[in-house]
Write a protein that binds this DNA or RNA. Structure first.
Lengths: 262, 262
DNA sequence: CGCAGGCTTGACGCCGATCAAAGGCGGTGG
DNA sequence: CCACCGCCTTTGATCGGCGTCAAGCCTGCG
């Protein structure tokens, strides 16, 4: 949990300048012109990646930086006064973490690595200064990011209130699939870096239910799932489930499925 | 609900400059210095308030302005591909509406007046220009607003996934109560401008359930509710319900309720 | 090799959705 | 001003999805 502060040059051995960053083209900073890019060197990378289970920050930590995921994956969660925890999202490369801490000055959720992962740290004070100097408003980009985050959240809320359990899981798998696609990885076969327990919490279901649902989707020949490896066999079918297309014809669908099974 | 007019320019009859606005002190624009305030005259107010049921904007409408609620109340909702609607929030004076439309360039939800209401319109292009000229970054304020919005959403998500129906309604009433308090109105007695139907949708419940729950809270002597008028009698008790403090002693509570009913 | 923690599977019961119908309020027109 | 109508709300009865409890299984790690 060692955070690097704005000592610009001294600890350069732990840093990689943005100019040299391999993933720069897909980065928030990508459109910076060369002049500004020098400033961007201040956006550092932790040389040593974080291990599974390590926290990027905890709920209540002072907010001072934004983080850009370079590799790996994270889960974010909130704990309320009663100690109840709610997983609020899963995050992959190029996602920005920590934005929600800007206003209260403290992080309102914790973020934990689901596997070996690395991030870029963007000290927010510096970020603000650079964005004021720059014509191309970084702030605007940030808002864009925030905006799409709000969209995702709304989508999730919809999932949680309007969908039956099976729809939620189907929808969840499709979301992950979409994420993989956007990152130029296979949308049909991927690894779920999070535990069943996290999925259940995220979807507002019991672990046992999630487990049963994975099986049910397999029985319907929509996916093949073994542990964390998921193979989507029938993408359309999964979409149909997610959309709740079996509501009236439930009996019929079930019959078909049973026929398919044997 | 009479607005004060100014004789500043030709179209002034439809507008009120920010300088003259009665609610300016609690406004997003409040910290503007005098020089900037002149620009702020471009932030117009609809002279004719909106009527109940009127839409401020629809989902998919081109995003061009932010709106600041001067009076009244609104509900926001999202409709997905399948036509399913989800109420995403209720909004009162000083709330900002429309932020979520910035990135996609279109509004991702619709906003509808729950009663006679009025708003200030903040053309976003202008907003950006002013914020670039200004040292005190308006953008920063906007982000603050967005940030607190995200916090609320997270809170709501928690409510929807982790709470039983009774907790959700108690929590909802407490949220409204808090809103009233923040607006210097009584947190103990207020009017709910939205229909039961909207509350149910918002909380992810059936209308019938909401209706029954209102009654159950009354039976427990926590509130007095008649139609849209709500009186919170036992704030602590309501907090206890919201926190789920009866989980272990559920049987006892139920017995008490049954005894009270007959 | 054995243990711990995560995952699966089964049995059961409750919460809340759904269906059905009656009651009340507000708006509109006679 | 009253009467009617439609929509919102309440109330009752029934049913099923999913949470809960309990046990057994798998897998990775020490």
């Amino acid at each position: 949990m060692e955070l690097i502060h704005s000592g610009i040059n001294i600890s350069a051995i732990n840093k990689v300048s943005c100019k040299q960053c391999q993933t720069r083209k897909s980065c928030l900073m990508a459109e910076f012109d060369e002049g500004e890019a020098n400033n961007a060197e201040c956006f550092v990378t932790h040389e040593k990646p974080m291990g599974k289970g390590q926290h990027l920050f905890l709920q209540g930590d002072k907010f001072q930086s934004l983080y850009l995921i370079r590799s790996g994956s994270f889960k974010s969660s909130i704990t309320d006064e009663t100690g109840e925890r709610q997983v609020t999202g899963f995050h992959f490369s190029n996602d920005i973490l920590g934005i929600d801490g800007i206003e209260p000055g403290r992080h309102i959720r914790e973020v934990e690595a689901l596997e070996t992962s690395s991030v870029c740290t963007l000290p927010f004070q510096l970020f603000k200064e650079v964005s004021l100097r720059s014509n191309k408003s970084l702030y605007e980009k940030l808002i864009c990011n925030v905006s799409s985050m709000m969209f995702k959240t709304s989508h999730l809320m919809m999932t949680l209130t309007k969908m039956k359990a099976e729809q939620r899981l189907a929808s969840f798998l499709l979301d992950i699939s979409q994420s993989m696609y956007e990152r130029r990885q296979s949308p049909h076969e991927f690894k779920l870096p999070m535990a069943r327990y996290d999925i259940a919490n995220y979807l507002g279901l019991a672990v046992e239910t999630v487990s049963r649902l994975f099986k049910r989707l397999e029985d319907q020949k929509l996916i093949v799932a073994q542990r964390h490896r998921v193979h989507i066999v029938d993408m359309d079918g999964l979409h149909r489930i997610a959309a709740g297309v079996y509501l009236d014809s439930k009996m019929i669908c079930s019959e078909i499925n049973y026929r398919q099974i044997r």
